[in-house]
Design a protein around this nucleic acid. Structure first.
Length: 935
RNA sequence: GGGCGGGUAGCUCAGCGGUAGAGCGCUGGCCUUACAAGCCGGAUGUCGCAGGUUCGAAACCUGUCCCGCCUACCA
């Protein structure tokens, strides 16, 4: 397979579609994705559980983000020899999936109740079968090197078994209980919600409506205010502050409900009532408000439920019965007004609680639900992090994690849905409850199975070990628990991560992972959250394969007018205007690379398509540099041993830079700063390797002045650097690097593919910081000479004499040794004249000073006839100013009384060195001042 | 109300005690036989504001103004 590849020549330009098609299947065939608990027990493990996406969902940028980061980490560790398990899977996503199917039914004019539970579930499974494979397919497009053969679905039989086991265990331990209390109720989905599933819409326009209750047996009244007038049907108390003198006379009195005549006590409550707010009197509806519920408990008030489960007024409401809660609101206001009890209304901004899934306004409702006691598990989960057994990165999230667990509430785990894990409980005729894995034999006639299902997050909380076969003891669980890293978006830190930490600790006795890595939320280019309403959603596959903007918005805002949708889209992504009429096919590698360069500390990641383009250009650069290198290396065997002790300074320099880059990359991956690793590689490959090394191989290969030994060494260095770079970049851009790696010569007996090749380690190449600096000075000299040329508008093809002066013999030797490089890149006439300060300045020359720790170099370019005195004078002044400024800064530092005592030695020394070289530079510059006259 | 984070080049962001950085954008010049998806140059910042600590602050402290996010019971 590979030999046939090495024979065909590389296309002139990088084309992602040509390289991204086949590798996935090959990697699979080569066993890249496989983990094996029995293989080589000496190897350290690296296990990352993938956050299971909603099985019926489709790919969005969040998935692309986590795949990029996780897969990069996974490939990095795999190449470093870890026994690597990237555990994939999908989630049944209870409410979300049920909602989708119910909407389908609604289009047929049916509800789930028309079908009945069994038929409805069949329908959901059918939908899952139809759409369920898609998300996994899409994840593969991103190159995700997960153990696909082990993919799990949270409703699989084994996952289900784990869920029931966990439930029964918690029940037996007394950690699960049933309770009747106020819960967040979604009247549209008709289910309870955990407090995490409620979003608050800030600043919703509402009104504070005031009305009067008449005091029993008098014409006196007390005025209360509410944002939800309809709840007055369930009022069972009016609370005042015990010390509020306005109401002292009402202590112990009752008011009469205007619609049903209910006697309602006036109670004194200092907790609920703020005497300064409104009238200082509060209506109390224990059955429909969390504060009132607590108040009711304090005073023994009746709890009267006035709503049906779908949010209509129930029979208690009398003439209002059957009205939807929002209709009832209007009617009640009207009725109060007609009764002469309305006391006006004022605008009031309120926080409207909404279901994060259905968007329905959440109604607090009394009901009986199942709960998990969290305190003990939370304390343990807290301890895992505080003791350092589990590390959270970026560290800033640790506080958030702790704050949540410190204030943990018991978790309402029952949902009145059909799609999900059914609670394994049976209710007897006399209210008995049995919890068991299967229907207990004694629960026959008269016993009914609990109708509720579990919160989806209950099964996900078991994910790091249920996927390994828990509760059965087996080699996978032994070898791969705890996992190494858990990487996900910070938005599910509470929902998922904290709960895995709690369940992992409880069921396994150990935290489920060593590190928790969190990334931000991908938003549009202007920082707005992606949403269909805003029309700013981007499908990652459109970036990979390319798509016209017209097609993009057609998907984003189905049914909307194209012009309008396009306008919204372009507003959200100002940079796309520069991309023409659509996204070009950036390819997976470019999308991944771009996403990898955002630091994880960014809570919001503003997606700029233009930036992805930049990384596609980078891949093209890699492609062409490899192509060029292959051309130079040729077919003759490469003697890699020559790179161990290189003769050329240039060889040593690039190998040392490579080594430094290897270090930076490991640091980046190690600290979850993949962006740093990605940037280090980008800079090395483009700015060091391509711009300098590759350019300089040209004279080596072509000029007769170089020996065959030089050429052999250069071919070896070239092969080494290219091959190492491809391996280094592979975790970030797996496809292009694999394609190229297959074709480059390799030093050792290499494995079948780059994905399984050994990752470069520090010290593999020349480890020599000095070697880096040495040639860096040559580089600066060349840059200075080029700058002079450009400044004086010398045509790039023209040659001109160059003189380099330095007091340092070492520097002069360096310049002479690398004269060939200077000559080639500056395009000077013959060799540069290298000498000490005694060497005469060429007439009509322009000067630049390069100051370095090794010594100062005067770069003199003769420009006879090309430069005017005015221009040179201006340049001289600029140069002088620049150096003066630098000198002043360093002098100020060194001049201060105890800088030398307090600052670290290296810093002081460095400052001295700096000043010395700057002063030397100034002397040189000033010496040239009068020479401008010669021009 | 409480908590957390952020305000640095036109944009997106690094830097978090030692003379302001990157990518993109802008700009001048080059089709130099790997790459014009390129090459060689250039410009650009009172580092939100005000105090303080320090020899030295974009970085540390205090206050202040904006902006996000999370969290909470103001009817």
């Amino acid at each position: 397979m590979t030999t046939e590849l090495t024979n065909d020549s590389l296309a002139k330009a990088y084309d992602p579609s040509a390289v991204e098609g086949t590798w996935f299947e090959r990697w699979k065939a080569w066993g890249v994705f496989d983990a094996d608990p029995a293989r080589n027990p000496e190897r350290p493990i690296y296990h990352v559980p993938m956050p299971p996406p909603n099985v019926t969902g489709s790919l969005h940028m969040g998935h692309a983000m986590f795949c990029t980061l996780q897969d990069s980490l996974v490939r990095y560790h795999r190449m470093r020899g870890f026994e690597t398990l990237y555990q994939p899977g999908t989630d049944h996503a209870g409410i979300a999936t049920q909602t989708v199917v119910e909407r389908q039914l609604a289009r047929e004019g049916k509800t789930r109740h028309d079908l009945g539970r069994e038929a409805f579930l069949e329908r959901v499974w059918a939908w899952k079968a139809e759409s369920g494979g898609r998300i996994e397919e899409q994840l593969r497009v991103l190159g995700t090197s997960a153990a696909w053969s082990r993919a799990k679905f949270t409703m699989d039989a084994d996952m289900s078994h784990a869920v029931r086991t966990a439930f029964v265990k918690l029940w037996d331990e007394g950690l699960i209980y049933r309770a009747t209390r106020l819960v967040h109720w979604d009247p549209v989905q008709m289910t309870s919600l955990s407090d995490l599933e409620v979003d608050f819409e800030d600043g919703a326009a509402g009104e504070l409506f005031s009305f009067a209750y008449k005091i029993e047996g008098s014409e006196d009244e007390i005025v209360v205010a509410t944002t939800r007038p309809e709840t007055m049907l369930g009022d069972t108390g009016v609370a005042i502050h015990p010390e509020d003198e306005r109401y002292t006379h009402l202590h112990g009195k009752y008011v009469i409900h205007p619609f049903n005549g209910r006697r309602i006590p006036i109670v004194c409550d200092a907790v609920l009532v703020d005497p300064k707010f409104g009238t200082g009197a509060v209506k109390v509806t224990p059955a429909h408000d969390f504060n009132d519920f607590a108040t009711g408990k304090r005073h023994g008030l009746e709890e009267i439920n006035i709503f049906t489960l779908d949010g209509k007024v129930n029979e208690i409401g009398g003439k209002f019965a059957g009205l939807d809660r929002f209709v009832a609101r209007k009617e009640i206001k009207k009725a109060l007004d007609e009764a002469g009890l309305a006391r006006g209304a004022q605008k009031h901004a309120l926080r409207l609680p909404k279901s994060s899934r259905s968007g329905a306004v959440v109604e607090p409702m009394i009901s009986t639900q199942w709960y998990v006691k969290m305190k003990g598990m939370a304390d343990q989960a807290l301890d895992f992090v505080r003791s350092g057994q589990t590390q959270i990165l970026p560290e800033t999230w640790q506080k958030t994690y702790e704050h949540f667990l410190d204030n943990i509430q018991d978790w309402c785990i029952s949902r009145q849905l059909w799609w999900g894990h059914r609670i394994p409980a049976w209710h007897g005729p006399n209210g008995e409850v049995r919890v068991s894995m299967e229907r207990p034999a004694e629960c026959g006639e008269g016993w009914t199975e609990d109708p509720d299902v579990l919160d989806t997050w209950f099964s996900s909380a078991l994910w790091p070990f249920s996927t390994l076969g828990w509760p059965d003891k087996n080699p996978w669980l032994e070898r791969f628990y705890p996992a190494s890293d858990l990487e996900t978006g910070y938005d599910i830190l509470f929902f998922w991560v904290a709960r895995m930490m709690m369940f992992g600790g409880h069921f396994m006795g150990k935290p489920p992972f060593k590190r928790i890595l969190l990334h931000g939320l991908i938003v549009d280019e202007t920082g707005e959250k992606m949403s269909k309403v805003k029309g700013n959603v981007i499908d990652p596959l459109d970036l990979v394969y390319g798509a016209s903007f017209a097609d993009v918005v057609k998907k984003t805002m189905p049914g909307a007018a194209e012009a309008e949708a396009l306008a919204k889209f372009k507003k959200a992504y100002p940079s796309v205007g520069q991309l023409g009429t659509g996204f070009p096919a950036f390819g997976t590698d470019a999308v991944r690379y771009a996403l990898a360069t955002y630091p994880p500390s960014n809570t919001r990641i503003a997606l700029a398509p233009k930036r992805i383009e930049g990384y596609r250009f980078f891949l093209n650069k890699i492609w062409n540099a490899t192509r060029f290198s292959l051309d130079i290396i040729g077919d003759a065997p490469v003697n890699f041993a020559l790179t161990k002790e290189p003769r050329l300074q240039l060889s040593k320099w690039i190998l040392a830079k490579l080594d430094a880059t290897v270090g930076a990359v490991h640091e980046g991956f190690g600290a979850f700063r993949i962006d740093e690793a990605a940037n280090a590689l980008y800079r090395f490959f483009w700015y060091d390797f391509c711009d300098w090394y590759l350019e300089l191989t040209k004279p080596i290969l072509r000029d007769a002045a170089f020996s065959d030994a030089d050429r052999d060494e250069t071919r070896a260095v070239l092969a080494t650097v290219v091959e190492a770079s491809l391996r280094l970049i592979h975790p970030l851009a797996p496809f292009a690097t694999e394609e190229l790696w297959q074709r480059v010569p390799k030093a050792d007996t290499s494995p079948v593919c780059c994905a399984l090749a050994r990752y470069p380690e520090l010290g593999d190449y020349v480890h020599d910081a000095q070697a880096e600096k040495t040639f860096d000075l040559v580089r600066e000299v060349i840059t200075a000479a080029r700058a002079i040329r450009t400044e004086h508008e010398v045509h790039p093809a023209a040659t001109m004499p160059l003189t380099l002066r330095s007091e340092s013999a070492d520097v002069r030797a360096l310049l002479v040794h690398n004269d060939w490089a200077v000559r080639f890149l500056v395009k000077c006439e013959g060799s540069a004249t290298v000498g000490g300060p005694e060497v005469a300045r060429p007439p009509a020359s322009s000067l630049r000073i390069v100051a370095s720790q090794q010594g100062t170099v005067e770069v003199l370019v003769s420009l006879k006839g090309l430069v005017t005195p005015e221009k040179e004078k201006a340049r001289f002044e600029r140069e002088k100013k620049r150096i003066e400024k630098d000198i002043a800064a360093v002098e100020k530092k060194l001049g201060s009384p105890n800088f030398t005592d307090r600052a670290p030695k290296e810093v002081v020394e460095e400052a001295h060195e700096q000043l010395r070289s700057l002063k030397e530079a100034m002397v040189r510059l000033l010496a040239s001042a009068n020479l401008t006259e010669e021009l």
